[in-house]
């Protein structure tokens, strides 16, 4: 495993930990989109169908379990936990996530590498992950008031995506036959979605002012 991949996984892990820290210790999910969290739970559930059938490494299995466990517990917290539930900004989190799920499913049925259930589900998860952040970005723009932990959560998620692109470039030049168009194009789309947020995040950090997004 190369350094970009490891750093990407670690920033992904940090983003989840930042979010769990906010929810678990502050008992608040203000500014967090339940729609995005539900999409991520669906992404991991459909991508890791191989978790008990194909063993790659202990690292791989443990990370998969962490991402599955954390994404479902975040959804549980936001839906079921009395205190956390109260801080959920339901009125602004109105993005219709079915509009993302259905096109991704159709696209996965049309464009995939192998027409098997596992492979189509895996491809669906790749497409869905690319756009799953949209409800969160829309919510951030609507709330105007972004707290530090929420900003850091999205920042680390974006860092994870960027590092994965560097990982693919590295693997392309170091491993024979490493060509994966579906993952690359989806990953690139996903990273570009963060570009705008990154711009405002970094400029607010540089100018030492509170992060706000333009309407």
């Amino acid at each position: 495993m190369n350094a970009f991949r490891l750093a990407g996984d670690m920033t992904h892990l940090i983003s989840v930990l930042v979010l769990l820290l906010k929810i678990h210790t502050i008992k608040s999910c203000a500014g967090i989109s339940l729609k995005t969290q539900e999409l991520y739970a669906l992404v991991f559930a459909t991508r890791y169908l191989d978790i008990f059938t194909d063993f790659i490494s202990l690292y791989n299995t443990v990370m998969k379990l962490i991402f599955l466990g954390s994404s479902f517990s975040i959804v549980w917290y936001m839906r079921r936990h009395k205190l956390v539930q109260r801080s959920y900004d339901k009125d602004h989190d109105t993005f219709r996530h079915q509009l993302l799920v259905l096109p991704c499913l159709i696209l996965a049925l049309l464009i995939h590498e192998q027409f098997t259930f596992k492979e189509v589900m895996w491809t669906f998860s790749i497409y869905l992950e690319a756009v799953a952040i949209l409800p969160q970005l829309v919510l951030l723009q609507r709330t105007r008031n972004i707290d530090n932990l929420t900003g850091q959560y999205v920042f680390f998620l974006g860092a994870y995506r960027s590092l994965y692109i560097l990982n693919w470039i590295y693997r392309y030049f170091t491993e024979p036959h490493y060509v994966h168009w579906i993952t690359w194009i989806s990953g690139l789309v996903q990273t570009l979605l963060y570009a705008d947020f990154f711009y405002y995040y970094i400029s607010s950090w540089k100018n030492n002012v509170k992060l706000t997004l333009p309407a």
Partner: peptide, 10 residues
């Protein structure tokens, strides 16, 4: 294309 190779990523 070796699609199996990719499944080692998360």
């Amino acid at each position: 294309v070796d699609s199996e190779l990719l499944k080692d990523e998360l």
